[in-house]
Nucleic acid binder design. Structure first.
Lengths: 186, 186
DNA sequence: CGCATCTTGGAACGATCAGTACAAGATAGT
DNA sequence: ACTATCTTGTACTGATCGTTCCAAGATGCG
């Protein structure tokens, strides 16, 4: 009991993000979220609002944490469009290999479970995918890809990113995921 | 009320399969399953057992329905490994475009939601993925691919298959999905 | 017809769900 | 130190979850 918050909001948000990450939206019950954040129900609802709002804030935190990694990887200079793809997927592979953060990817998991989200959540997921796609396309053009090639490669790289998350979730090894990424960057 | 079953078991199973397909395991409530199959609760449980068993039977029916399509597409003869990949992904694209069967793919969705399944369900999903992978590898070897190339391409084609389902679920157009498939078969 | 067997819909179960209410405790300003 | 304000844990709500139970009705066999 306290008069000032007894937890770090961002750290709690990270905990919530990991729960959504691990379990997906439907299976991320409030009980699991309280356990994952270390907060009581009162603090959870008082700070973040309902489950849907907490999910969206988790998505935002996800973006704040990981988009810079992708941006940096894409910022170049790159010798070829293939190098851009390799750099992008390299970030994904590193993330999947991170022992602090279990396999999978909040965004991808969300994309696969859109029917479980409400309208606001769905819109945010779609918007984030569009953002990543735009970042990729721009970097590919900067690396010398033509308009058409940039669009095509951005789409396919996004696709590979999604497949890496799903395969990781399905138990494929890091070596196998690396192979998939390497072929995509070829 | 009846003494003999008043519904077709296989047709009911198809209905259940579509519900799991559309909603994923967690969001496929018994109410949705009774609506999707047209059965009452008593008939559902009496015929198929609990939700987990119904899911596994839906997976079996899925395999019985769609594996032959993939087998036929893979049966060749094919002029090159790339043709095998194109044939395989063509089946997936056709399935996604089928208006009778909403976008997405039960198996892929299941792979992305493994934590929601019990041990038996998880094992069956993994086994089905392994089966498809084996089918692909064999067909690729038959099309002249080397041992290493066959393994690599089978893995990547499986990856593309998964990504197609996720992207479709995320609202990407049929044209975009075709592009992804075409690049993968290149 | 009479009886056993099976099917069926609906009622009901305990568990869990997301979300709310609130009293008790801790702080900050005065 | 007093008070207003905020935070926190817990008890609680109504809804929904998966599941079980059962009486009523339909069938097949003698």
């Amino acid at each position: 009991m306290a008069g000032r918050k007894q937890f770090d909001v961002d750290e709690a948000l990270r905990g919530a993000m990991l729960v959504f990450w691990r379990w997906g939206y439907s299976e991320a019950s409030i009980d699991r979220l309280t356990e994952g954040t270390g907060l009581g129900r009162g603090s959870l609802y008082g700070t973040f609002g309902d489950k849907s709002a907490l999910f969206r804030k988790s998505l935002e935190r996800y973006a704040q944490t990981y988009h810079p990694l992708y941006e940096q990887a894409l910022s170049g200079p790159h010798s070829s469009p293939g190098a851009v793809v390799a750099a992008y997927l390299g970030v994904t592979l590193n993330r999947i290999a991170d022992p602090d953060v279990p396999d999978g990817c909040l965004l991808t998991m969300s994309a696969a479970q859109l029917p479980a989200l409400d309208a606001e959540g769905q819109a945010m997921v779609r918007a984030m995918i569009a953002t990543l796609r735009g970042m990729l396309e721009q970097a590919l053009r900067a690396a010398g890809a033509g308009e058409r090639e940039a669009a095509e490669l951005a789409l396919c790289t996004l696709a590979t990113n999604k497949s890496l998350a799903v395969l990781s979730r399905a138990g494929f090894s890091g070596e196998e995921l690396s192979t998939v990424a390497a072929v995509a960057a070829r």
